[in-house]
Amino acid sequence: MLPVEIKSILEKRAKDGWVPEHEAKEILKIAGVPLPKSAFAATRQQALEKAEEIGFPVAAKVVSVKIVHKSDVGGVEINIKDEKSLEKVWERFEKLEAFEGMVIDAMTPGMELFLGARDDEQFGPVVLLGLGGTAVEIYQDIAIRMAPLEKEDVLSMVRELKGARLITGYRGKPSVNLDALAKAVIAFSRLAMDMAGAFSSIDINPLMATPDGCAAVDARIIL
């Protein structure tokens, strides 16, 4: 069953055809997918306050219903060190089409993974896990499974990747926390099941994974 809070976000965004980052993250949070420290700011003043709360350095990402691929229009700024720099970013974002505000995230280190879901006509919700980042469509190193998933499914997805060793440890680099990763992917797969019939696809890119845990740094839901 889909929680009321998720339902109301989906209903509100039905006319736009997609759910932008800050609301997509709300949905993920309710579903139990871990997030970095993150906040939405609709005014410059709010932005400064939230950044202070989260603690510099931060990342800022534009929120606009017209902008699906934020980095393509310069709508992503990372490693913002202080208030002055943040104000400059605000001024730049303000000029972008249909500007609604910005998402401010704590800078999140880790290995960039991709976690996605699609509501397939023949098979219902399916989940994708693979190497993330902006080059995800170039490498296409992803595994696909029919949801819902169990831990063994998630581990087999990791094993299937060409870049599996980048995740499980390589040349002295420790493995990412596979238990935490599995937990996040399982929660995400259950969300996809609950949303069956109500979405087209979900992208979490990147899902930052570290030896300690993982966090959905950017997300959008296409309705």
């Binding site: 699609r118 397939d120 595994a143 696909i144 979900i202």
Partner: peptide, 22 residues
């Protein structure tokens, strides 16, 4: 396609992965 997922998980790739899964 407006999402990475839709572009990466084409119909046949999805089909083939699920056959293997089962």
């Amino acid at each position: 396609v407006s999402s990475h997922t839709a572009s990466l998980a084409g119909d046949y790739r999805t089909f083939s992965s699920i056959m293997s899964q089962y």
